[in-house]
């Protein structure tokens, strides 16, 4: 067999190597080094963290490639970057500069209101957000090699990440108890490819790695998502919008590893300084919610 690159196994495989870890949003190469030193398994390079995207408004786009390249130079861990939903040219640009993963992200302003990127077309792997099982399996059907909950980015309120993780994991549990004759109807109801529904049912989990994202701000938030059954966590604004980013980053890494040991969680949660201020999701007007972007 000749050497084969960009197979689905190696795309999905990198996400498998990130399991049990924390992926951190960074906006400068200095942040990236702090994240790497704190034990991050990867960084997400972007111009503004989601909390600032909310604050500033306007159209949020792919970051300047120069910034992403500086971050890639600064660290040895994988570097991810965001493209707008449906913006396949932003994705081509990110692939051209050599990022390790693309997040087709609802945090940026969508570029297409009907279609996501055909992710099979790319050598670089993609991660996509979801709120439920149907959405997760549609993204995998389009070629996503990793899934994350959408949560509600930039709020510091974990409630939506919990809702989305419970939704996906609960639907998988129900699917496992469903008789075979109901599976085609179920696939139709949730708008998911039938073959992926079968595969998920057989595996008892999503066919790709599944992280939590969107609103995590504390070590306990990370550990709670892990106990709910996700494979790892993204922390966006929660680290660099807090009082002591280096310390909080390290604490969240430790909490993700020792997620089921309350004594260690108590220890790492001590004296972390101020968390990000945050915004309660239930008080945000519908029009400002990010998680509804994507189809």
């Amino acid at each position: 067999m000749e050497k084969q690159v960009a197979t689905f196994a190696v795309k999905k495989g990198l996400a498998q190597m990130l399991k049990g870890g924390v992926i951190m949003d960074v906006v400068t190469h200095e942040h990236a080094r702090i994240a790497e030193d704190a034990g991050a398994v990867a960084v997400m390079a972007l111009e503004r963290v989601p909390a600032d995207i909310r604050e500033h408004g306007g159209v949020a786009r792919m970051s300047d490639p120069e910034l992403i390249l500086q971050i890639m130079d600064a660290v040895t861990i994988p570097v991810m970057a965001k493209a707008r939903i449906g913006h396949f040219v932003e994705a081509q640009v990110l692939e051209a500069i050599g990022v390790d993963y693309i997040d087709e992200s609802e945090v940026l302003t969508p570029a297409d209101e009907a279609y996501h990127i055909n992710k099979h077309d790319f050598k670089v792997p993609f991660v996509c957000g979801c709120r439920n099982l149907g959405e997760a399996l549609r993204r995998i059907g389009e070629g996503a090699a990793m899934i994350r909950t959408k949560g509600e980015a930039g709020t510091g309120d974990v409630v939506e990440a919990v809702r989305h993780a419970r939704s996906v994991l609960g639907e998988i549990r129900r699917l496992q108890n469903m008789p075979e004759e109901e599976l085609m109807g179920y696939s139709k109801d949730i708008g998911a490819p039938y073959e992926l529904v079968l595969e998920t049912r057989a595996l008892g989990r999503l066919p790709v790695v599944n992280f939590a994202a969107g609103g995590l701000a504390t070590p306990s938030d990370a550990a709670m998502m892990m106990q709910l059954g996700v494979d790892g966590v993204f922390v966006g604004s929660g680290i660099f919008k807090s009082g002591d980013p280096a310390k909080r980053a390290e604490a969240i890494v430790k909490a993700t590893t020792h997620y089921d040991d309350p004594y260690i969680l108590a220890e790492v949660s001590r004296n972390l300084g101020d968390p990000m201020v945050g915004r309660q999701v239930s008080a945000i007007p519908d029009a400002e919610l990010i998680a509804d972007r994507g189809w």
Binding site: Q4, A6, V10, V124
Partner: peptide, 12 residues
């Protein structure tokens, strides 16, 4: 990372 970044990951 002797072979480069993720797009260079491979099976053989």
């Amino acid at each position: 990372n002797a072979f480069g970044r993720q797009v260079e990951s491979f099976e053989i």
